[in-house]
Each structure stands twice: as C-alpha cells, then as structure tokens.
Nucleic acid binder design. Structure first.
Length: 370
RNA sequence: GCUGGAAUCGUCUAGUGGCAAUGACAAGAGACUGUAAAUCUCUCGCGCUUCGCGCUUCGUAGGUUCGAGUCCUACUUCCAGCA
C-alpha cells in the first residue's frame, strides 16, 4: 500500500507526504505534465532546479512512441527520462475524450496512431500492462470521459469507468505479483457536475480500495468546490487524491487544496508559456505585447526563478518576437516555477495556519479584485 | 541615347474592363485546464451610428468607357539589353 502521511489537516484540507519508491512528494504539490516523458521545452535538471517534485507522463503517448517495452528495458520512466524522482502515468483515458476517430466499446478503445496511422487498441487490462512496463510509481485507472456534459452521458461514462475500474484493479493486482517493484493504482472518480453521480462514483472508487484517487472529468472550474466537498468527503482521508488536469488558473489550485486535493497536474503552464502568456503575482501577462518592448524590469520582480533573476521583459519580448527557442525555455521555466511555488506556499500556509490569509491576498492581487 | 520591361496596403505579391482590390510575411490583439498545441483565432486604407454606410486608393497627369489597378497618350522613376 502506498504510504501517505498527513502532517496537518483542517477540514478537508491537509498537508502531507506521499512516499514513493522514487522519493517523497510533499503535498499539496504541483506535478509537471511530461506527456511524452518530457516537460516540453525543459530539461529534467531545469525541472529539479525550479522545484518540481514529480512528473506525470501519458500512457497513450508512450504506447505510440517509444513503446512501454522500451521504457521497461531502460529501467522505467524515471530512469529512462533521467528524472530520477517520483513519477505518475495517466492512463490514456483522457484521449478517448479528446481525440477524434476513436471507437469505444465495452471492451476498450480502438484508434489510429496519429504518428504512423497504425491501428491501436487500449483496454483497462492493456493500459495497466503498459503502465507497469513504463514503471511509473503511480498509475491512473483507465477511465472514460463523457462525450457531453448531459446527465445521461455523464452517467453512462461513469458506469463504464466503474466497470473498467474493476478490471483495472484485477489486472493491477495480478501484475503487482509479477513485478518486483512497487507500483500503485489510483482509481479515477467521474460524474461531471452532478452531485449524486460524483457521490456514487466516489463511493464506488473507495470500495475498490485503490492506493489513491484521481478526480477526473472537471471541465469547468465553476462548481468545483462543491463537487470536491462531495467527493473528498466520501473518499478515505488516509489516501492521496490527485486533481487531474486542473491548474491553468491559480484559483483552481487554491480551491483544490482547500477541498482536500493533494496533487495537481496541468499542461497549461507550459503550453501558455510557449505561446507567450506568463504568470505574475499581478496576473497574466502576454509578453509579446508591444508595451514590453522597452521594459527592462524582470517579468516578476518577486520571483526567484532563473528567468526572472537574470532576464528582463524587454529581452523576453525580443526572444518571442524573434521566435527564438530560448523564449519558450525561459517562459516555461518561469510558468512551471510559478505554479509549483504557488502550491508549495499553499502547503507552507496550511502548516502555518495562514492558508486563508495567503489565499485571500494572492487571489485579490492576481485577479485584481482588491 | 535607342529598344524592351516594370511601378498595387510596412515588405514581397495576385490581379488583363465591374475590387477596397489576392496571398505570404511583418505588425496589433486574443485564446489555451489529465498536450495530435513550437498551436489556433481575430484585426490589419480612412471615418462613422461597424452583420451596414460614406469617403479616398494600385508612380504622376490626361484620355477612351456606363464603368479603368486593368485599355490609350505623355511624363517620372527603376530594371535589362544595345550603343
């Protein structure tokens, strides 16, 4: 069983430590999205230097290339990528929802590789097998997102996710006997914005007795607090919870932590960075805007990342306008650092009993609502 | 000097009788939440009461025509070849 220590808690909110075979994660923590086993534009050293504690790769992408068996040969995801720290893999379930031309049956999912055109099939069992071969410390169950936000579609997706979860758990238990390494399974809670479905899903996932939980299918941040109250009120307190895919908006991280989520992952910080949108304590900035052409101040004067410590807004502006690779590197370092540190400070504030003060000050300043 | 050819939005460019005029780049702005994202969208002559209307535009000045960026004449500039 995955070891998770809660150091301090208040209501649903808590600060703790997840002990993985590749090291500890002090929670709440922001996990870097390393879809294809790399955080786009960043080296693993840069990720470590900016303070990241863990990364999350995607089984779907790694099946297409370079293949789970190759990663297994390399010694596993952490070794293959030279991350050497705690790792997660997402199951590939999200791709069912996000990709065109997928055929979904009760058995699993069929799709064509966007890389080669080859036909692939994923089932709960094959996702588990792939994740064990990839060798991340924490695996997500192969879930099914709804095709729309309607109640009927949500319920259908949830029910299928539950049936698949039983198969995932069975396969996971089987594989855990074949492998010498410790690897852990998170069940994924579905149910959209419907309270009764979320409650039902949380209950079902809890009864499966996985090592932790992913909370998936969050499309809109509106209503997320209520949803998390329901879900995390039901999930056992002693197991870690990962809020899947949320973190573009800093407020989502505060809401998530306040309502009992321990880890987060989101592609937005690095994606936005590549596109020139950068976080600052005073809100988002599009560094490509003409007004930064002669701004020789740091992007965020209070930030201690490599980018803000060494470069000016004018320089970043120039690099982006010139379409230089370094623009994306520096911007990604900054944005990833920003969200990682924001969550680290949430942890500190939980431990210091200053969460509300930190949250209120941060959000008022970031969203300029003072 | 002669003979050809060319002049269109910041730049390059489409356009051969019905066009405020094509495309690319540049420029300006926006989006992005378990990444087919180094992507995508919008604006880009001027002014308004902006799903519309009114002006002014294709080197300059005239002309032909219901109508000219497109045809004709002259001029200006540039390019090529020949002296």
């Amino acid at each position: 069983m995955l070891k998770f220590d809660i150091i301090k808690s208040k209501g649903l909110m808590r600060a703790g430590v997840i002990h993985t075979p590749h090291g500890d994660i002090k929670t709440p923590a922001f996990v870097g999205a390393a879809t294809k086993s790399t955080v786009k534009a960043l080296t693993m050293k840069e990720m470590r230097d900016l303070g990241s504690q863990a990364i999350l790769a995607n089984t779907y992408h790694l099946i297409l290339a370079p293949g789970p068996e190759l990663i297994k040969k390399a010694g596993g995801l952490a070794e293959f990528s030279s991350w050497h720290g705690p790792t997660f893999t997402d199951s590939g379930g999200f791709q069912i929802f996000s990709l065109p031309d997928v055929k979904i049956t009760e058995d699993g999912v069929k799709f064509k590789s966007y890389l080669s055109g080859d036909k692939f099939e994923m089932t709960p069992e094959s996702s588990m097998q792939a994740q064990w071969a990839i060798g991340a410390d924490i695996h997500m169950a192969f879930d099914h997102l709804a095709k729309s936000e309607s109640y009927d579609d949500m319920e259908e997706a949830m029910d299928r996710t539950h049936r698949w979860l039983e198969r995932c758990k069975k396969e996971h238990d089987k594989l855990s006997k074949e492998y010498e390494k410790e690897q852990y399974l998170y069940a994924v809670v579905q149910g959209g914005n419907f309270d009764n479905l979320r409650a039902k899903s949380a209950e079902f996932c809890k009864n499966i007795e996985p090592d932790g939980f992913g909370i998936g299918g969050v499309f809109v941040a509106d209503g997320m607090a209520e949803m998390l109250k329901t879900v995390n009120g039901i999930l056992p307190e002693c197991k870690p919870r990962h809020l899947l895919g949320m973190g573009q908006e800093p407020i989502d991280l505060f809401v998530g932590a306040e309502h009992g989520c321990d880890t987060f992952d989101c592609v937005a910080p690095t994606r936005m960075a590549r596109n020139g949108t950068l976080y600052t304590l005073d809100g988002r900035v599009n560094i490509k805007n003409a007004k930064f052409k002669e701004d020789f101040t740091p992007l965020d004067p209070e930030c201690d990342c490599e980018c803000c410590q060494n470069y000016t807004r004018a320089y970043l502006h120039h690099l982006f306008k010139s379409d230089e690779i370094t623009a994306k590197v520096l911007a990604s370092i900054h944005n990833e650092h920003f969200v990682v540190k924001t969550v680290d400070k949430i942890r500190d504030s939980i431990l210091n009993d200053t969460f509300e003060e930190y949250r209120n000050n941060f959000l008022a300043r970031y969203y300029n609502t003072k």
